[in-house]
Design a protein around this nucleic acid. Sequence first.
DNA 1: GTCGCTGCAAAACATTTGCAAGAGG
DNA 2: CCTCTTGCAAATGTTTTGCAGCGAC
Lengths: 135, 135
Amino acid sequence: MRGRLTQAGLRATRQRLVILESLLVLPGHPTAEQVHRRVAAQSPTISLGTVYKALDSFVAAGLTRRVASAEGSSRRYDADCSEHHHLFCTATQEIIDYCDPQLDQLIREFFAERGLQNFQPHSFSLHITGVKNQG
Amino acid sequence: MRGRLTQAGLRATRQRLVILESLLVLPGHPTAEQVHRRVAAQSPTISLGTVYKALDSFVAAGLTRRVASAEGSSRRYDADCSEHHHLFCTATQEIIDYCDPQLDQLIREFFAERGLQNFQPHSFSLHITGVKNQG
DNA sequence: GTCGCTGCAAAACATTTGCAAGAGG
DNA sequence: CCTCTTGCAAATGTTTTGCAGCGAC
């Protein structure tokens, strides 16, 4: 935990440790507000502004990503920076990570063969919209 | 133009006609603010609030979609509601439509064969991040 | 010690809402 | 005409900023 921060070149402050831990634990890719709610439960003095600044610093350091989403008015964050895809549940608004090396390869092969006119692709992320079953 | 609106069950007001036309013409999937700037150039009395309401009504009527994007603080809109994919240019922040029936089929086949645990997929959209070449 | 980080409060944006007046069918 | 839409302005929500003081290294 502490190591993740220092390795990324960030000071391991008490606040950042709590914020990073909350981001990792919260399901569905939370907003700054949601992270703050969980953080405030154990450390009520950590301000919302600090959560915003900490999340920004995580993104700048490559520890965290911003998640693309069409609905909702707030930005959402993803602690996982490896290449992966997302399931968007239209019922719960949850965003679920989906990892699939075979799918990655399929897409990479497709574009290696076909290419894109006037565009140099760098990374691919599939957005799958639908509804979650069960719990 | 007028037909698109009435067919979608919306009143074809002067404002909506101008707003829809601007949305269709503007490149890169504009924000409400960008649509308003273009609209105001020819009809300075159309307010930003009206642009927001008109865009919302287009989305509700299925004429327009909101676009998922990770960067930027404003919502962006896409006049094209058919299934398609997006190229995200990290240099210009543009979002370019990418249509490819072969890719659609590849993805659909992949998931038909493999399936997803606890998730009922409805639609797929590939986000390709990279940089645009040339103009 | 130094410099980056935090907390607070204010500012800057972005979006929504309420309502009287106007326009579409 | 009746109802939906507009324009305005105010309210609400989200994110950023400035800065004095604190804390990590």
